[in-house]
Design a protein around this nucleic acid. Structure first.
Length: 509
RNA sequence: GGGCCGUUAGCUCAGCUGGUAGAGCAGCAGACUCUUAAUCUGCGGGUCGGAGGUUCGAUCCCUCCACGGCUCACCA
């Protein structure tokens, strides 16, 4: 107790007083007749009637004015003012000084308007439902004459908002709304895919081998089997095995894990949706992509034209389609088609793009694209037909053998996903994966083990298939105006705070 | 990993070129029958992120460390 501050001490003292007067501060439940939102929605029909309203919420404001008090309670994003009068409540009124911001209470009340006309609940009785022992930061808002909203005492410290997200989503409506929108986006995607005949499957996160993307994995030790296991970096190889197994349209929404740096658009733990459709090719996937984004935007904003931090972005299908080479020509200002590998290398060095003597023309073009093109693709673009070096899992282009049938949608300068006409020739697949393993694509010490189980599966026969992946977090960022990926992740990974229990258990050496 | 910036009360922030800290909200005590970002009066609350150093004296200057933010690099 001695290390408690005055805030915590005060709450414990009042908790004690509650208990001394025979009040259970943590009862088991409270039957409500209306939630706060429904009271607000139907206030006009409730007002003037004798209807007894039982509702509950968390105290967000207390204004005591002697024999009358005003308390705002909040539940599920809706709040309403209680009017409590000593004359009507009698002894019950003496409970009020024992209440704090953050406490949960239940009330019996009737719809009421104050003298200033504010919709309120005239309260007969109050019951404590859960006493808070820590003080809640309570930002206050003022609506100015010009309609703008001024916030006082905001809960704005980025680190605290991430570490104590429950406070952030409680007191910052824009943060709360963002996570509700995230849920609606996911609901929309599921309903879109299900309505197109896809089924949702779940494939392993813990894997003996990782694959399906180029990324470094997390690894851990599984004691019972005495083996090293990896957290998946992609769902791709298992979802293709579903296709092989006769589930012709599958999708999975789940976490992937990549043991790489964190920045504004990268999180080590992120949500990806991948979907695969038998007998389709990458052109079919383009249509899905456009409609998933446009539909998700409509689901939360009612429009396919959105604003991202001041930039108007039109997601209405169809999006502009541009080949990889056209995009390079347009944004890098050079036609690389006719240049030799050595000429491209020279060009890169003039532009200070790092390339090595071993880099093929395709690899260098990918580097140029990343450097010169990506950030300029603000309005939705589908960039298609990549150099074949881009990926070993994609089918060779039906016309130009130097290319693969891959596309990546770009919006706001961000890569939003990735899609292929999937490679289904088992012999070519084996060659490409084995070659990748030899080269260790990053050039460095990276290891891309060949997944024999996948190669064997594909030898049983895989139909022509279109596949796609969408980075859900970036998609939510775009659609909700978030500037950092951590703003769309409820509880982003943080280093342990000094002195917390987490630190004591997390530090292993 | 590099660069820059930050860390002061539960929250949001002041603190001038070094003299051991202030405000508003929140909290406590009291007053107030219709308020609505802080009503009024009074009060309490801080190892100024941590450890060293310089100095008679450090929230302030220096070094290291921790955590965080932005950014570059790496990376889909």
């Amino acid at each position: 107790m001695s290390d408690l501050n005055d805030q915590a001490t005060a709450r414990r003292e009042k908790l004690q007083k509650l208990m001394e007067s025979g009040i259970e501060p943590y009862p088991h439940g409270y039957q409500i007749t209306h939630d706060i939102a429904s009271i607000c929605d139907s206030f006009v029909s409730l007002f003037g009637t004798e209807v007894k309203i039982r509702t509950a919420g968390r105290i967000m404001r207390i204004a005591r004015k002697g024999k009358i008090s005003f308390i705002d309670i909040l539940n599920n994003g809706a709040s309403i003012q209680l009017v409590l009068s000593k004359a009507h409540m009698g002894e019950g009124y003496s409970l009020i000084p024992l209440l704090h911001l953050g406490d949960f209470i239940g009330v019996e009340a009737q719809a009421y308007r104050t003298e200033t006309g504010q919709e309120s609940l005239f309260t007969q009785s109050v019951e404590v439902l859960a006493k808070a022992l820590r003080p809640l930061p309570v930002p206050k808002q003022k609506r100015n004459d010009d309609g703008s909203i001024e916030v006082f005492d905001p809960f704005s410290d980025t680190e605290l908002r991430y570490r104590k997200r429950y406070i952030d989503i409680l007191v910052n409506p824009e943060s709360r709304t963002r996570f509700i929108w995230r849920a609606r986006i996911l609901t929309f995607i599921r309903s879109y895919l299900e309505s197109h005949g896809f089924i949702e499957v779940q494939t392993p996160i813990l894997q003996a081998q990782y694959g399906g993307a180029q990324a470094r994995p997390f690894s851990t030790q599984y004691n019972a089997l005495d083996m090293n296991v990896f957290l998946r970096i992609s769902n791709e190889l298992f979802l293709k095995q579903c296709i092989i197994g006769g589930l012709p349209r599958v999708f999975e929404i789940g976490k992937d894990f990549r043991n790489e740096g964190i920045d504004r658009t990268h999180s080590p733990e992120f949500t990806m949706i991948e979907f695969y459709q038998a007998f389709a090719d990458y052109r079919d996937m383009m249509v899905h992509f456009e409609h998933i984004f446009a539909g998700a935007a409509s689901a939360i904003h009612g429009s396919t034209v959105i604003d991202y931090c001041g930039t108007t972005i039109d997601l209405t299908p169809p999006w502009k389609r541009i080949t990889f080479h056209e995009a390079l020509k347009e944004h890098a200002g050079t036609d690389f088609d006719t240049m030799t590998e050595q000429e491209v290398r020279t060009w890169c060095r003039q532009e200070h793009i790092e390339v090595t003597e071993n880099d093929t023309k395709g690899i260098m073009l990918l580097a140029i694209f990343a450097e010169k093109v990506e950030h300029r693709l603000i309005q939705p673009h589908i960039v298609h037909d990549y150099p074949r070096e881009s990926t070993p899992l994609c089918k060779r282009h039906r016309v130009d053998g130097d290319l693969v049938e891959q596309f990546e949608p770009y919006i706001n300068g961000w890569e939003m996903g990735n899609a292929y006409t999937e490679l289904n020739d088992p012999q070519i697949q084996r060659t490409l994966l084995e070659t990748q393993n030899d080269h260790g694509r990053g050039g460095a010490d990276e290891d891309y083990p060949v997944d024999e189980g996948f190669l064997e599966a594909i030898e049983y026969g895989m139909p022509p298939t279109g596949g796609a992946g969408i980075g859900i977090d970036r998609m939510v960022m775009l659609l909700t105006g978030a500037q950092n990926i951590r703003d769309v992740i409820l509880f982003p990974l943080m280093r342990p705070d000094n002195g917390t229990q987490a630190e004591k258990t997390a530090i292993t050496k």
